[in-house]
């Protein structure tokens, strides 16, 4: 579906079901340099299980018009604007990696509209290695290789995916390769400079789920202690054998965990 925010076109998929803003809504927010298609199974599942789904392409990503936002605050302001435009009142947000920061930042602002937040592959502060940042800023393919090499868990690097014939490491690479020049660098930089994680967490009143990958080498689960301390109402679930791309590596387990949380 297409809509407009600040005069720029925004694309989101609805998981194959009708958009109905009177229903409880789940907004999915992808991570740095990615797009909505990382959530294809989860979006389809919840769209057919009692929710309206807004599976977003952030500005400058996928089919949404650019440019990408330069900071997490800007992404979050844009998201709040979109929620107004779509006239959504009962919203839950599922964010992955950079998307989890956008969810944290927005959760603090949305107050009564927000019902639940799920943070996947998250840290209160996502620091990016300077070499990776430089390489992404310069549009080097090596940046994609580092993201796939570190982001896709070691188990998924061998495979055995539940979706028949699906090669996750390859699909992750192709997705990054379709990102517009500079977008990955922009996003990693936005993560790197955002300091508001713990403060936002302290302002969030709704229930929050931290869904973490046991083998996540980009946002290791052990780094979330401060975050869970700052949140008023949170639970943490660690997916066995999953890396940073848990929703594509283990779509089924991700659906089951989210489904329990949203029930």
């Amino acid at each position: 579906m297409e809509t407009q925010v600040h005069g720029k076109s925004v694309f989101f998929s609805t998981g194959g079901a009708k958009f109905n803003n009177a229903e409880r809504t789940i907004i999915f927010i992808h991570g740095a340099g990615m797009d909505r298609t990382v959530w294809s199974m989860q979006a389809r599942f919840f769209a057919h299980h009692g929710f309206t789904v807004v599976n977003l392409d952030l500005p400058g990503h996928g089919k949404s018009e650019g440019p990408a936002c330069a900071t997490i605050e800007e992404y979050s302001d844009w998201l709040c604007e979109l929620i107004d435009c779509l006239d959504l009142h009962r919203v839950s947000i599922v964010g992955h990696s950079m998307g989890s920061l956008v969810a944290l930042c927005s959760g603090a602002k949305l107050e009564k509209k927000i019902q639940k937040i799920a943070l996947l592959g998250t840290l209160p502060k996502i620091q990016v290695h300077p070499d990776l940042l430089t390489s992404a800023m310069n549009n080097k393919h090596g940046a994609f290789e580092t993201i796939v090499g570190w982001g896709v868990g070691r188990k998924a690097q061998i495979g055995g995916h539940k979706a028949p014939g699906s090669w996750i490491a390859g699909a992750s690479m192709r997705l990054l390769e379709t990102s517009k020049p500079g977008v990955l660098g922009n996003d990693l930089n936005a993560c790197n400079v955002w300091e508001g994680g713990l403060e936002s967490a302290g302002q969030i009143k709704c229930p929050v789920l931290l869904l973490l990958g046991e083998d996540d080498r980009m946002t290791p689960p052990k780094g979330t202690k401060e975050l869970t301390k700052a949140l008023h109402n949170s639970e943490t679930i660690i997916l066995h054998g999953a890396g940073h791309m848990m929703m594509t590596e283990q779509p089924d387990q991700t659906i089951e965990t989210l489904s329990d949380f949203f029930e």
Partner: peptide, 26 residues
């Protein structure tokens, strides 16, 4: 409805065949 992964019927997919499919993709 392609909301969840898995096998339904071996004309469409099969766990042994899926290993081969992933291997050639890799």
């Amino acid at each position: 409805n392609l909301e969840r992964p898995g096998h339904i019927y071996s004309r469409i997919s099969n766990p042994t065949t899926a290993v081969l499919e992933e291997r050639i993709s890799a």
